[in-house]
Amino acid sequence: MIEHTEALEHTATAEHSHAAAHVHRDDEGSKMGMWLFLFTELLLFGGMFLLYGGYRFAYADGFKVAAADMNTFIGAINTILLLTSSLSVALSIAALQQNQKKLCLSLLWFTLLCGLAFLVNKYFEWSHEIHNGIYPGGPALENMSNGEILYFGLYYVMTGLHGLHVVVGMIFIGFVMVFIARDKITSINFQKLENAGLYWHLVDVIWIFLFPLFYLLH
């Protein structure tokens, strides 16, 4: 008898879910999907880290010479910026969970600001290098050793691609902010914010490795 009652209960839920099949929500599944996507990002950069490892192994001296040209201070500032933006994203989730919508939104604005500041710094760094003739095919780079050429090749590609991810992350957060403002993301339905946060943290993690590998090689 007990078994039958349970089966009936199950049926009730099954029917219910059927009617709502198109709007069903599975936060755990959504998070799982996001993590799998992060893995692909990780391995995308992972491929380049492997290249970096291979070339650094082959041209240890050239890499050191080239890295001496980097401004450690700006690199460190950018690291702090991204770490802080990661903090504000994490805090924004906590704020939303406690129904503090305004605080959540301001924290996300702050995140965007940090991201923007990071990009501005990157812009000045790049223009400084380019001004000095260090770019693919540039006059200064052409006279450098192979190790240095590869270092700067990887530097531009990896930080460039990372910068692109910062931009994408900012757009992602921007969309999420609109959803929060319109109460589509709420304290009981915040997986989208969580996913945006996961993406942003991944961008942070990649920078955590890029920073020592390109700036701290004296």
């Binding site: 099954a14 879910s17 709502a20 069903h24 929500r25 936060d27 599944g29 997986q191």
Partner: peptide, 9 residues
Amino acid sequence: ESRAFGTEN
């Protein structure tokens, strides 16, 4: 929802 999909949101 949680029961039907074995979810714990």
